[in-house]
Design a protein around this nucleic acid. Structure first.
Length: 833
DNA sequence: AGCACGCCGACT
DNA sequence: GTCGGCGTGCTC
């Protein structure tokens, strides 16, 4: 297809007058190709790449599509349909965005339409919805209708309009089209296909004074004339006062301030003293917050800042490894300031959970209304508004969660990815299954922007990139403001048992420390990475263990509802008191979870206020926030929790952390689990003594010599990375990447296994020993489907990602044709290290 | 993603 | 015999 630049289109248009243009558009669907539409002549001059158009696609569906390419040659194999309209005056996407979409589609093996779907705020996408109404003019005999048709007509008598979904619910069946079709043919109903406009700008009326009265004398005259209308004089005075304070006076603000009625206001408009103007306004408050710019960087921070800047000049991404409370945010603020001074935009990415009101306020205080916030809690209109402001360059900084990598930056100069290791940067479902951190790295190249990845516990792949010289490392190993790092001690549970100093699941050391902390009115966090009461039940007569019927995983006993839960699929069954296998009465509980700890603490420390924080106590809408608030307000002395307590919370008064069972975290099925243990223990340790010099972490273990505990003590990711443990863990640390989640669904487990094995063999044959087949199958049962996840590891040095993807696509295609099993591959996920 | 079309088991 | 389930293919 002939590509034309914008100017040449106009030239051709002028020269020939009747040039036909064709546009290739991106449809918001999971279709691998783009489709070509024809432009009506009168719209020729408006056509531009990046504008949205409305097109009909398929028989009666209307979609918003995006102009991707413009050409002049008519497609040969088919007749192109006309576009119905152009929605935008200016493109809503940038060239760089379209580049990155293209790259993402190929990298994550999905369609560009799926990328667009994820990228555009839904207010910018209009989808047509089929609505059904009764044709009032039609005359028909109700007795001639089938039962189902009658039901639909009846429902339409009551409710004027129904959607397809309404009818599906009404009839209780999935295939409703034949019924609708038949009714429509009989002209009894009408089927309406209509686009629903999403984004509505907020409009406010602004008042201005007729310029005649800018003249002082005329203004004085005006007051004379109005002498007999005191209310109007009053309103006019208020206006004059407000107009000195603000650039623009809104009608709403003026009426509120003057306590005048709209009638008085209208009178002044009638007399042409006031004029009204409607303007689009922002939904976001732009209250001027006091700007605090003065803070001093510590020597360590200054050092790190210089290292980061050196990395920038070398055009290398920088990994900033800084212990918790080391003041990374202050460094980021300095970097953003420098970026603004160069007149460029900055993007500050945070995982969703770390996007707290506190964080947002803090940055707003520095950057005022130059900063835009973008995350999933925003509604559609707000998102669309941020989008437009970023495009226009009104926002110089964006603070946002993973989806903000899709915003239309025009001149990006800096990207910060905070908590780089966080799993929540990865989108797992639906496609595109992207990792915002990796996209950020790609964007930094595309925009030639600087990028910093920050974390207290970097991911091993990022650390590998430091070791291999791709990234530059900057580190901050001391806390800001001279606060000491916590003291980390290990207590040997075998020893304590021998000396009989244990108090239920607490070592003497931990228990004494807890008593002391409570005496000093300091708070305690106890970390136990297992929820429920007991993770396993065993019959002491026959060794029977209850397992999930679906997942083959031992069931956890939950005391609060006296049920056995499967933590994998959510299956529940009631507790039994006699062994279902042998009828034995002695049933033993193995291990312990947060529920049991909470129970025992209540007995051992009856005066302490104890709260548990895990999935079970935070399931309600505000449960999580409630617990956090109570803990902050010191209404809780001891917080017992699972990994939830490790994340981004900043409690001032916590002086003691207990890791109750480190051993549960020391067996590594693969290197991700291994990395995770290190991260979780390091993160929870970092919560101790953040604002005071008194911070202590006690790690309980039967394996005090275990290396990972030692590394946690020294925040030593380097040893972790180099260790023979990593070497031995069944998944190797980088330089490898893997393709994960090649999911196959089938209803029969044997066929599924056979299919997965076959695919694994095929891949191995083609790619050699560098491929790890379905050795680590993750079999899950979701409703009545079995899903199998193939984990595939490929050595990066020897084989390119594109080759891997090619072989996988080919194998799947081949496998599909040859297979006697009817198997569907439902998703493919790329997770490069 | 929708939607049409075609094939096949289980109901009046 | 048809109704409604599901697999397959197409949409500019």
């Amino acid at each position: 297809m002939n590509l034309l630049s914008d100017t040449s289109i106009e030239n051709n248009y002028e020269n020939e007058g009747r040039l036909t243009l064709f546009v290739e558009v991106i449809l918001p669907l999971a279709i691998s190709k783009n489709y070509t539409y024809r432009i009506p002549y009168e719209l020729n001059i408006e056509v531009k790449v990046g504008k949205r158009v409305v097109v009909q696609f398929g028989k009666n569906k209307v979609y918003t599509a995006l102009i991707y390419k413009i050409g002049t040659r008519a497609p040969e194999l088919y007749e192109a349909k006309y576009i119905l309209s152009i929605l935008d005056n200016e493109p809503i996407t940038t060239e760089n965005q379209l580049h990155s979409w293209e790259w993402m589609a190929s990298y994550y093996m999905c369609s560009i339409g799926e990328i667009m779907n994820a990228a555009l705020p839904s207010a910018l996408k209009l989808a047509s919805e089929t609505r059904i109404t009764l044709n009032r003019e039609a005359e028909f005999d109700k007795s001639l209708l089938t039962d189902k048709e009658f039901l639909v007509v009846d429902a339409l008598d009551i409710k004027a309009e129904l959607t397809l979904n309404d009818i599906i619910k009404l009839l209780g069946q999935k295939t409703v089209m034949p019924i609708i079709k038949s009714l429509s043919e009989k002209r009894i109903i009408m089927v309406i296909e209509e686009l629903q406009q999403g984004y509505k700008p907020r409009i406010e009326s602004f008042v201005s004074l007729n310029p005649t009265y800018f003249d002082q004398d005329r203004l004085r005259d005006l007051f004379q004339v109005l002498e007999r209308a005191p209310k109007q004089v009053d309103l006019l005075m208020t206006y004059l006062r407000l107009s000195k304070l603000k650039k623009e006076v809104s009608k709403k603000g003026l009426l509120e301030e003057s306590a005048s009625s709209p009638a008085v206001f209208n009178a002044l408009v009638e007399k042409e003293i006031f004029s009204l103007e409607k303007k689009e306004v922002s939904r976001f408050k732009t209250d001027e917050i006091e700007i605090i710019r003065n803070f001093e960087l510590s020597a360590a921070q200054q050092d790190a800042l210089e290292t980061i800047q050196a990395g920038f000049t070398e055009n290398r991404p920088v990994l900033l490894q800084g212990v918790t409370s080391s003041g990374k945010t202050q460094l980021y603020i300095r970097l953003i300031e420098a970026c603004i001074q160069q007149g460029k935009q900055s993007l500050y990415l945070l995982p969703e959970i770390a996007l707290t009101a506190q964080m947002i306020e803090r940055l707003k205080a520095y950057f005022g209304d130059k900063i835009g916030i973008y995350h999933s809690k925003f509604n559609d209109n707000e998102r669309a508004e941020v989008w437009k402001k970023v495009l226009k360059g009104e926002y110089r900084i964006v603070l946002g969660a993973r989806s903000s990598i899709f915003l239309p930056f025009t001149d990006l100069g800096l990207i910060i990815v905070d908590e780089e290791h966080e799993n929540s940067y990865k989108q797992y479902d639906p496609a595109p299954r992207y990792n915002a951190r990796d996209i950020a790295l790609y964007l930094s190249k595309l925009h030639t922007a600087s990028i910093v990845l920050g974390s207290a516990t970097p991911s091993l792949e990022s650390y590998f990139n430091v070791k291999s010289g791709r990234y530059r490392l900057a580190s901050l190993q001391e806390r800001y403001g001279g606060v000491k790092l916590p003291e980390i001690v290990i207590t040997d549970l075998a020893q304590e048992r021998k000396q009989r100093s244990m108090k239920s699941h607490f070592s003497g050391m931990l228990f004494r420390a807890m008593e002391q902390a409570l005496e000093r009115k300091e708070q305690i966090i106890l970390f136990q990475n297992r929820r429920g009461y007991a993770p396993m039940l065993v019959c002491s007569t026959c060794a029977y263990t209850p397992k999930c019927v679906q997942c083959d995983i031992s069931l956890t006993y939950h005391k609060h509802d006296h049920k056995l839960h499967c933590h994998y699929c959510g299956y529940k069954q009631t507790i039994f008191h006699l062994c279902p296998a042998c009828g034995g009465t002695q049933i033993e509980q193995k291990g312990f979870g947060t529920e049991k700890i909470e129970d025992e603490l209540a007995i051992l420390l009856p005066n302490a206020r104890i709260t548990r924080m895990d999935l079970d106590t935070t399931r309600t809408k505000f449960g999580y926030q409630q617990i956090i608030n109570d803990f902050e307000d010191r209404k809780i002395d001891i917080l017992v929790g699972t990994q939830m307590v490790t994340k981004g919370l900043d409690f001032e008064n916590v002086s003691l952390i207990g890791i109750l069972n480190a051993d549960a975290m020391l067996n590594f099925p693969d290197f991700r689990a291994f990395e995770r243990s290190f991260q979780l223990m390091t993160q929870v340790s970092g919560r101790a003594g953040r604002r005071s010099d008194r911070g202590k972490v006690i790690i309980q273990t039967y394996q005090p010599q275990h290396k990972i505990i030692d590394w946690v003590k020294h925040n030593d990711i380097q040893s972790l990375y180099k260790s023979e443990l990593a070497e031995r863990s069944s998944f190797h640390y980088p330089p490898y990447f893997r393709l994960i989640q090649l999911d196959i669904k089938h209803k029969e487990i044997e066929k599924l296994n056979a299919a997965a094995d076959m695919l694994g063999r095929e891949l191995k044959q083609q790619l050699g020993n560098r491929v790890l087949g379905p050795e680590f199958p993750l079999v899950n049962r979701i409703r009545n489907l079995y899903i199998k996840t193939l984990l595939i590891k490929i050595e990066k040095e020897n084989i390119s990602l594109s080759r891997v993807k090619q072989v996988i696509s080919e194998s799947i295609a081949h496998f599909y044709r040859e297979s006697e099993y009817k198997t569907t591959i439902i998703k493919i996920d790329v997770d490069p290290y």
